[in-house]
Design a protein around this nucleic acid. Structure first.
Lengths: 153, 153
DNA sequence: GTTTATGCAAAGGCTTTGCATTTCA
DNA sequence: TGAAATGCAAAGCCTTTGCATAAAC
């Protein structure tokens, strides 16, 4: 899902960020970045921990939390929290902007894209003086699959 | 902020909801509804608990959580979670739809309104078959106040 | 009189923190 | 060498759960 060029690119972004902010370039941090960019879609800390353990890469949960913070700060990952569930992450670079629909019946999360959200961001930013850096639009309701299931039980 | 007529109205909505779903109409539930509708803006469970205690109304946190669930189900309150902070609630009935801007510098939350979000809801719903019931649009960035502060330190 | 709701305290789950040890610069 | 990061375990915090008691219906 991610080309070698893209991998190099995000590594470069991370390296620059770490250097610019006086953080150390530890092997753990790059191992986590690599693992994050091999994940498709959403994942949580526990899952990341399990995957790395499975690959025999020893990292502590504390380091996972710390590193995700760094990756958030340099915009290489996004963090979401749907309802009260544990935080979900997803890689952010080189992937087109999207938002989420959350089904209250099955709990599933789908993605969608609507360019008009950019217009709202601009307008609101200009009118209020707020500098918009990111956004999250969540649509809550019932997904197509669950709707048809309930109609034909 | 809430007229007596509006208070009666939401009580009626809650009463109907409880009866329709076979829940009991306990004094605690109505006391909580009343307190919720006296709150302006956002509040969390702890604050609600403190306010009611201060007014000498004995209610347990467990009942607060349970009752907020009921109020969520009949759409009398909204629930938000900004970043990883404790859940925030706000009354929902008879107040115009709005969304939120969250400042990463001061942590403040401002409201805004843009009718175009309704168009997005409709379009996405039609195109995907997802039945949209609610939405939440969060704009993350830096608020006007913090921007000017950092420019003039 | 049943059944549901309440209150309290304990348990749970995700996340953060403290501290000794390691490692990067 | 000195400061920062790691790992581990413990602590924290919000929320849920279990069970005895109380109160709707």
């Amino acid at each position: 899902m991610v080309s070698p060029e893209q991998k190099d690119h995000v590594k470069r972004i991370f390296t620059d960020f770490l250097e610019k902010n006086g953080h150390r370039k530890t092997p753990e941090r790059f191992a986590i970045l690599t693992e994050v960019y091999e994940q498709d879609g959403h994942f949580n800390i526990e899952r990341l921990y399990a995957r790395m353990k499975q690959k025999r890469y020893r990292v502590s949960r504390a380091t996972l939390y710390n590193t995700m913070d760094l990756l958030l700060h340099c915009d290489l990952v996004r963090r979401h929290q749907f309802n009260g569930a544990p935080a979900q992450f997803e890689r952010a670079h080189a992937f087109k902007q999207h938002d989420h629909m959350i089904c209250r019946s099955c709990g599933g999360v789908q993605e969608f894209c609507d360019p008009r959200i950019q217009h709202i961001r601009s307008t609101v930013g200009e009118m209020t003086g707020f500098r918009v850096e990111h956004h999250a639009l969540h649509l809550y309701g019932v997904c197509k699959t669950c709707l048809t299931k309930h109609k034909n039980p």
